[in-house]
Nucleic acid binder design. Structure first.
Lengths: 200, 200
DNA sequence: GAAAGTATACTGCCTAGTGAATATACACCA
DNA sequence: TGGTGTATATTCACTAGGCAGTATACTTTC
C-alpha cells in the first residue's frame, strides 16, 4: 500500500491530504502531518514555508483528479445531457455512502478559512469551483443551449452539487443527492426544451 | 446599543453569538468570548459547563429568529408560492450583500464539527435544517402538491438555499442566489402544474 | 567541499479548563 | 430587629498541554 519510493515532498503532501480531508484543516497539526509522513517537522518546513502554504498545496493537488472524476462520471453515463447529469448525482450519492467520505475538501476548507479571502487555499477553492462551472457551461452550450442560459444553468447545477455536499455532510443521508439529481435533471430538460419554442 | 441590564448568561450568549458567527467556532477562544461579554472566564464556566455546551447554546438561540426571518420574507412577498419562494431568495441575496454577512452559522458550525456527529451543536444544526424543510414542505402541501412531491421539492429548495450559502461564502457573489431563486421558482412551478395533468 | 535534505531539541504563545476564595441575596428563626 | 445559614454568582491566579515555527548541527550526494 505505502509506496516507499515516493519523494519526501510527495509523501508529505499525501499525508497532509489524508489528514486534512479526513479531519479538517484546523483540527490537524503540522506535527501530525509530519508524523504521518514519517518525517520530522523540520523536514516538512524545509519543503513548505508554512502550514498555510501546505494547505494551499494540498488543495491544488486535489483539483485535477477531482475534475477528472466528474468528467469520467459524465462520460461513462448514457443518454442525453440531462440523463448524464442525473447520473453524476447518482455517482455522488454512491460516493457519499462510504464511511471515508467527508464532503468536499474545497468547500470545507473554504468554510474553515472564510474570513481570509486572500488565503491561497481560498483562491484554489474558487478556481476549482469555477473550473467545474465552466466545464458544465460548455457541456450545456454544446447541447444547443444559448450562452446566457447555459451559464445560469451551470451555476444552478453547481449550487445543487455544493448544496448536496453541505446537507449530506450534516445529515449523512445521501438521499438528498438523489433529490438534487432530480432537480438538476428537470432544470436541464427545461433548458433543452426552451430553444425549440423560441426557434420554430 | 449595549443594554447593560441583560443578565450575565444572556450577555455571554450574545457575545458568543457575535464572535462565533463573525469569526468561526474554532477561531474564537473562550477567553475572547468572556472578554467581549465583560466577564471573567471563570464566570463563563459557571454558566456553561464547556465550550462545546456554549457552542450548542449559541446555535439553539439562533434557531427561532432564523426560521422567523424566512417566514417573514415569505409572508411579506406577493404572488403564488413560486413567486414567494423566489422573493425569499432575493431577500437572501440582499442580506448576503452586506459586509457582516458570513453565511449560515448552522452550516458553518456543522462543517467545523463535521467529525463529531453526536456533538450537541450538530444536533441543533440538523434540527434547524429539518424545521426549515418541514416548513417548506407544509407550504407546498397547502398549495395542493401531493405529499411525496412536496417533500422532494422542499428538499430541493433546501439544497438550493444551503448551496447558496456555501457558494456565496466562497465567491462573495450574491448573483448565485438569484440563479438559485430562478431554479427554485422553476421547480415549484413545475410541481404546481403536475397535479393538473394527473387529475383532469 | 558545497548544496540539499534530515534530525534533535527547543522557544514562546495560546488554549480549555480548574482551585480556592469571595461577594451577594434571600430565607429562616429568635 | 438582628443574626445565621445556604445557594447563587463572581473573581484572581493557576495548570497542563498543544500549537506553529526555529536554531543548530549532522548526513548524504554529487
Amino acid at each position: 500500500m505505502e509506496t516507499v519510493a515516493l519523494p519526501t515532498r510527495e509523501r508529505i503532501l499525501q499525508a497532509a491530504g489524508k489528514l486534512f480531508y479526513g479531519e479538517g484543516i484546523r483540527a490537524v497539526s503540522v506535527d501530525a502531518v509530519a508524523e504521518k509522513a514519517g518525517v520530522t517537522k523540520r523536514t516538512l518546513y524545509y519543503h513548505f514555508r508554512s502550514k498555510d502554504e501546505l494547505i494551499a498545496a494540498y488543495l491544488e493537488t486535489r483539483d485535477p483528479p477531482n475534475l477528472a472524476w466528474f468528467r469520467r462520471q459524465y462520460a461513462e453515463a448514457e443518454g442525453d445531457v440531462a440523463a448524464r447529469i442525473e447520473a453524476v448525482f447518482r455517482a455522488l450519492a454512491s460516493a457519499a455512502g462510504h464511511a471515508r467520505w467527508k464532503g468536499c475538501g474545497f468547500l470545507r476548507t473554504s468554510v474553515e478559512l472564510f474570513n481570509m479571502p486572500g488565503h491561497p487555499a481560498m483562491r484554489a477553492g474558487r478556481a476549482h469551483k469555477t473550473r467545474l462551472e465552466d466545464w458544465l457551461c460548455g457541456l450545456f452550450e454544446d447541447a444547443g443551449i444559448d450562452s446566457a442560459a447555459a451559464r445560469d444553468l451551470a451555476r444552478q447545477v453547481v449550487l445543487l452539487i455544493d448544496g448536496s455536499f453541505a446537507v449530506v455532510l450534516l445529515h449523512r443521508d445521501p438521499g438528498y443527492m438523489e433529490s438534487a439529481g432530480r432537480a438538476a435533471g428537470r432544470l436541464v430538460r427545461a433548458a433543452l426544451d426552451e430553444p425549440r419554442r423560441a426557434t420554430p
